[in-house]
């Protein structure tokens, strides 16, 4: 099939950006969205033009490097699917596809479709860990974790840090990302010791980075490639309230 792409091109953060139209010819159903872009880039290169810059790495939906807002929806709107796992069989011949980068003040644009998501790293650095130094651990079975707790922690821990939750949120809020990490660690018995400090530090850093606030629209969970639930945000709100009331 043949497609028309409207792609956001921007040389760097300072330069003004614009949409550029290009053609994707002979696209196959079995191609992934990024493979389709690879083919377009090969074509651009062959014509001596600069290829479209976009992020990707593992291409199996787990590293969280790929982004792209496709026709107005981060990762293209297939349930539980990252852009790299989105396949062209979901598009129609002759369609025009608009491709934009993640848009958020906290994710400054780097080039074309690439943004800087280091804000997420700084939030993790603020407290998204359990302070277990290497070598000091007791036997792994010394602390039992009830299966439902372990399962819930895993549900939250599945986050790949892609930032689609921020990209889709009308307020560019990072609550789902932060809540997922807070919940993963706060749910587990191993993480209880630092529970209050963790939620406080991570929320403070999130606020500092310039993300918006949660208005509970639930669009984040709708686009999350790992289908992380909005309920974790409620849990983080609860943990933060407890930490606040304790005044620690």
């Amino acid at each position: 099939m043949n497609l028309t792409l409207k792609v956001w091109r921007q040389k760097d953060a300072a330069a003004p950006g614009h949409f550029e139209t290009c053609q994707a010819r002979d696209v196959l159903q079995d191609m992934s969205f990024l493979e389709m872009l690879d083919v377009v880039n090969e074509d651009l290169l062959a014509r001596g033009k600069e290829p479209i810059a976009f992020d990707s790495d593992c291409r199996e939906g787990i590293c969280g490097m790929c982004s792209l807002v496709i026709n107005g929806i981060p990762h293209g709107g297939q349930r539980g699917t990252a852009t790299c796992q989105l396949h062209m069989r979901h598009f129609k011949d002759g369609e025009t596809i608009t491709i934009e980068p993640w848009r958020a003040k906290a994710f400054p644009l780097v080039k074309d479709l690439i943004v800087n998501r280091s804000a997420f790293d700084r939030i993790i650095q603020a407290g998204g860990f359990i302070s277990a130094y290497t070598g000091g651990a007791p036997d792994a079975n010394a602390i039992t974790v009830p299966k439902p707790t372990a399962d819930a922690a895993m549900d939250a821990a599945a986050c790949i840090g892609c930032g689609a939750c921020v990209a889709v949120c009308k307020n560019a809020s990072a609550m789902l990302f932060v809540a997922a990490k807070v919940s993963h660690l706060n749910l587990l018995p191993q993480g209880k010791a630092e529970k209050d400090k963790r939620v406080w530090s991570m929320v403070s850093q999130m606020d500092k980075e310039g993300f918006g606030n949660c208005t509970v629209t639930a669009s984040c969970e709708a686009v999350c490639p790992k289908e992380i639930s909005l309920n974790f945000i409620a849990k983080m709100n609860r943990d933060y309230a407890i930490a606040t009331l304790k005044g620690e």
């Binding site: 949409f19 807002v69 026709n71 107005g72 929806i73 709107g77 608009t98 934009e100 848009r103 958020a104 003040k105 906290a106 889709v168 009308k170 307020n171 560019a172 809020s173 310039g210 993300f211 918006g212 629209t217 639930a218 669009s219 984040c220 969970e221 709708a222 686009v223």
Partner: peptide, 15 residues
């Protein structure tokens, strides 16, 4: 302030 540049083709989802 958190989204200084709006999307050109925003489509609401899940909300």
């Amino acid at each position: 302030a958190a989204r200084p540049v709006e999307y050109a083709a925003y489509r609401p989802i899940g909300s």
